[in-house]
């Protein structure tokens, strides 16, 4: 299977197999007018299987959102067909308006205009907690 290489844009690589659609939705890639390729379950020497997303446009990737969903991904910036930058992702200490708190007792369920903020409570487990009510998200 061949996917054209991109000239200017972003490649999100080393996505855990099966996670690409979550990332697609989280980064709102459906709103882009450019070509976006989702490559699922391709072979990887390091991971066995992985997903890749190629975005044919320079795009400001929300690294915090990526770090929350899959901190092992790599993000490459492509200019004139060459990789000019590789960004390693790590779990962010804080994520703002990436996910919503599901606790019905949390103030975020009723208060308008309040940012949904989570902090990294346990890096080893990838556990985040709502800063308002401490409800967990993993």
């Amino acid at each position: 299977m061949n996917i054209d290489s991109i000239q200017n844009g972003i490649v999100i690589d080393h996505i855990q197999a099966g996670n690409s659609m979550s990332i697609y939705q989280l980064l709102h890639l459906d709103r882009l007018a450019c070509s976006v390729a989702i490559i699922k379950n391709c072979k990887s020497a390091k991971m066995g299987r992985k997903d890749i997303i190629k975005i044919d446009e320079d795009f400001d990737v929300n690294l915090d959102a990526l770090g929350f969903v899959d901190p092992n991904v790599t993000v490459s910036v492509i200019r004139d067909g060459q990789t000019v930058e590789k960004r390693k992702i790590s779990p962010p200490e804080r994520i703002v308006n990436v996910i919503r708190c599901n606790n019905p007792r949390c103030i975020t369920t009723t208060e308008p205009g309040l940012d949904h903020i989570f902090h990294l409570a346990d890096a080893a487990r990838g556990l985040y907690r709502c800063v308002y009510c401490d409800a967990a998200k993993q």
Partner: peptide
């Protein structure tokens, strides 16, 4: 009654806020 309400309050308050109980939190 809502958990975290005092935090939401403190974000907008120019005066000190003391939490006297936020839900079961």
């Amino acid at each position: 009654p809502k958990e975290g309400a005092p935090i939401a309050a403190s974000l907008r308050s120019p005066v000190p806020i003391i939490n006297a109980g936020d839900g079961g939190h």
